[in-house]
Design a protein around this nucleic acid. Structure first.
Lengths: 185, 185
DNA sequence: GTCTATATGCGGATAGAC
DNA sequence: GTCTATCCGCATATAGAC
C-alpha cells in the first residue's frame, strides 16, 4: 500500500476520534492538524474540504461496522444464538473503546438539519445494523415483529450511549446490550 | 411583568428553537439575533455570553417539563394508569411540536465532553424524568425493577427521537411511547 | 434598553515554493 | 507530498452614543 494511502487512513482514524469526542463544528482544522501531527494545509491535499473529510470518515466507520459487526449475523455455519452473542460482545468492545460514543448518532443530532448530505451514509449504517439484528430475530419472530424488535434494540443502545456519556456510567449501555442478548431466549 | 423580563423570556424561547434545530456551535449570535428580530449587541445586555444563554435555556426547558410533564406522575388523585397515559400523551405533543428533537440529548452529544458546566442541569432533567416514570412503575414493580424500566423507557424515547430525525419518520418515537404506555398493562 | 461601530481572533481554504 | 505564508469572512464580545 502506498504511503499516501496509509497517511490518509491514519488521518481518517485520528480525525474520527476527535470529531466523535468534541463534535464537528467545535473542531477546527487547527485542532485536527495537531492531533494528526501534520500541517493544516496538508488536509487540502488529501481532502477537498472539512465536510468531505467527515463524509469519508462516516463511510469508513460504516465499512468497519459492516465487516466487524453486522457481518457476524450472516455467518450461517454458526447458531443464531452464537451469532447474536458475538454481535453483542463485539458491539460492546467497539463502543467501549470509542470515547465520545457513536459518531453516527452524534452527527445526526448535531448537523442533519443543516447538512443533509450526510443523511444517506448515516441511514445506510443504521439500515444495515437494523437488518443484521432482524436477520437473527427472524429465526424466532415473524418478519414484522423481528424488524420492530431490531429497531427497538438499536434505539435502546443509542439512548444508552447518550445516558452513558451524560452520567459517565456504562450501565445504561450495558443494560441495553443485555436486553438485546435476551431477545432469542 | 416588566417588559425587560418578557423580552428575555421571548429571546430564550426563540433561541431554544434555533439551537435545538441547528445545534449550538453551528449557530452564531447573528443568526440568533435575526431569529429574535433584535440587534446582536442586545444579547449582551440580557446575557453574559452565548454559553450563559444556553444555560438559561436548558434551565427553562427543565422547568417547563417539570411543570407540564413530570408533575403529572404525582397527581395522586388520579389512577396510575391515567397518570401514565397523560404523561405519554403530553410527551408526544411536546416533542412533536419541537423541531430538532430534544435539546437536552442534543447538548449531551454535541458538547458535554468539552463543556462540562452543562452536565448538572441536564442530569437534573433526566433524573427527574426517570424518577417520574419510576414513581408510577413502583405501583407494579419492586423499586429496583421500576427504576430500570424507567431508565429503559427514557433511553427508548431518546433513541427513537434520534431515528425519527434521521429517517424523518415519527414511527420510532411513537413506538417508544407505545412501549412506555404498556408498562402498566 | 437599544442602537451603531468596532476590536480581535479564529474559521476554512488557497497560492506557490521546495 | 509537504511546507510557509496569507486571504477573507465570520465568530464572540465590547465601547459608548442616545
Amino acid at each position: 500500500m502506498s504511503k499516501s494511502i496509509e497517511v490518509k487512513r491514519q488521518i481518517i482514524s485520528k480525525c474520527l476520534e476527535v470529531f466523535r469526542k468534541d463534535g464537528y463544528y467545535n473542531t477546527g482544522i487547527k485542532k485536527l492538524a495537531e492531533a494528526c501531527e501534520i500541517k493544516q494545509s496538508l488536509f487540502y491535499y488529501y481532502f477537498e474540504s472539512k465536510e468531505h473529510l467527515l463524509e469519508e470518515i462516516l463511510k469508513a466507520v460504516h465499512g468497519y461496522f459492516a465487516r466487524k459487526v453486522f457481518n457476524l449475523a450472516y455467518q450461517e455455519e454458526k447458531s443464531v444464538h452464537q451469532r447474536l452473542e458475538e454481535m453483542v460482545e463485539i458491539t460492546r468492545e467497539v463502543f467501549m473503546r470509542a470515547e465520545g460514543g457513536c459518531i453516527m448518532a452524534n452527527t445526526v443530532l448535531e448537523m442533519v438539519q443543516e447538512q443533509p448530505q450526510f443523511i444517506p451514509v448515516i441511514r445506510g449504517f443504521f439500515d444495515d445494523w437494523i437488518a443484521a439484528n432482524a436477520h437473527l430475530l427472524k429465526e424466532r419472530y415473524v418478519e414484522k415483529v423481528a424488524i420492530e424488535k431490531a429497531e427497538q434494540a438499536v434505539q435502546d443502545v443509542e439512548g444508552g450511549i447518550m445516558l452513558m456519556r451524560l452520567y459517565n456510567d456504562p450501565k445504561y449501555f450495558f443494560k441495553a446490550l443485555e436486553r438485546g442478548r435476551r431477545l432469542l431466549d
